[in-house]
Amino acid sequence: MGGWRAARRPAPLFVPVECGGHAAAVFTAEFLPSTPTNFVHAATLAELPSHDLLAAWYGGTDEIDPDVNIFVSRLDHLTGTWSPPRAIENGRGARVKSVGNPVLVVDKNGVRLFFVAVIVGGWSGSTICVKHSPDGEHWSSAHRIVTSPFFNLGMLVRSPAAAYADGTIALPIYHELWRKWPALARIDANDRVVDVARMAGSPLIQPWVVPRSPAEATAFFRWSARTPGVVTYATTRDGGAQWSEWRSTGLVHRDSAVAAALLPDRSPMIVYNNTPGDRRKLALVHLSTGRSLALESDPRPAFDGPIRREYSYPYLIATSDGRYHLVYTWQRTKIRHVTFTAAAIP
C-alpha cells in the first residue's frame, strides 16, 4: 500500500537556494542559438550537476499551433558555447494539440521537463506534462501529471520549482479555466502530486516562488488583467502549505510574467516589464532599495508589421558559481541570455 502520502510526509522544508556570492562585477549578454521557427518564447534554464547550463524554450509558427516544438540547448561551462538547439517534444506522443512553457527541474534523480500541453481550445484548455532525462540529452516520452479533478484541465506551469528537503519539489502552477488563481503543487519523485495549495485569487497567475529559509518563501505574481495592475506577492511560513493575503510591491505592470531571485543579502530582486501597457521595457529592480537596471527599453511601436517589440517572460536563476543567469523572449524571434553578478547591479 502506498499510504496517504501527503499526510505521512513531514511538513515540507525548502532546500536553501544559491544567491549570487560572486564578488566581481560581471554583465554579459548574448542570444541563444536560433531555431528554424517563426517565433520563440518562454525560455527556462537549469544548472546541471556538471555545471553546464541547460536551456529550453518553445517555438513554431505561432502559439498553440501544431508545429510548435520544445527545444533544448546546452551551455558547456568550459568552452562557453551553446549546443545547436534540438527539438525534444511536440506533444504528438502525449496526444495533445500543442505545447509551451517548458520548465526544467534538476535534482538528484536527473532532469525533469515540465511543460504545458494544450488539449482543447487555447491555453485555458491545457494540462501539465512531464518528461525525464538522466543527463539532459536523452529524454523519455511525456506523460501528464494530475493537478485538477475537472478533466485535468486548466492548470499551467511556467516558473521554476523549489526543492524540498524530503526530495519532493514545490512546482508553481496556475489555473486559467474560467477563473484564475496561482497555486503551489508538491510533487514527488514519481511525478505524483501530493498536495496543491492555492496561493491567491484572480487575477493573479504565474507564481514565482523564492525560498528565503527552510520554512519561509515569497511568491511574486503576474497581474493578469486587461487593465494595468501591480506586481504582487504573498509569503509563507510553513513551507508553502499556507499563504498570506497578497500585497502590492508597487511595481506597475500589466499582464506580463515576472521573475525573481535573492541577492547575497537575501533581499529579493525582480525582473519585470516596467510599463503599464505593453512589454517594450524590461527592468531588474532591487526591491529593498528600489534601484533598477534597464535591460530593454524600446521606444518604437510595440507592433510593427510582423515585428513584435516585446521583451518578456524573464526566467532568472542563480548558479553555484555565484552568478545569475537570465533568459527572456526577445521580440518573439530570439532568446536573450544575460549573465550578471550582484556587484553589477546598481
Partner: peptide, 24 residues
C-alpha cells in the same frame, strides 16, 4: 460541489481536502 470549487465558483478549495489524512 467539487467542480464548482475547482472552476473557482466557490472560494473554498474542496479538492485539496482529498490529499488530507482526514479525508479517508
Amino acid at each position: 460541489v467539487l467542480y464548482s470549487s475547482t472552476l473557482g465558483y466557490v472560494p473554498i478549495d474542496v479538492y485539496r481536502a482529498g490529499f488530507s489524512s482526514w479525508a479517508p
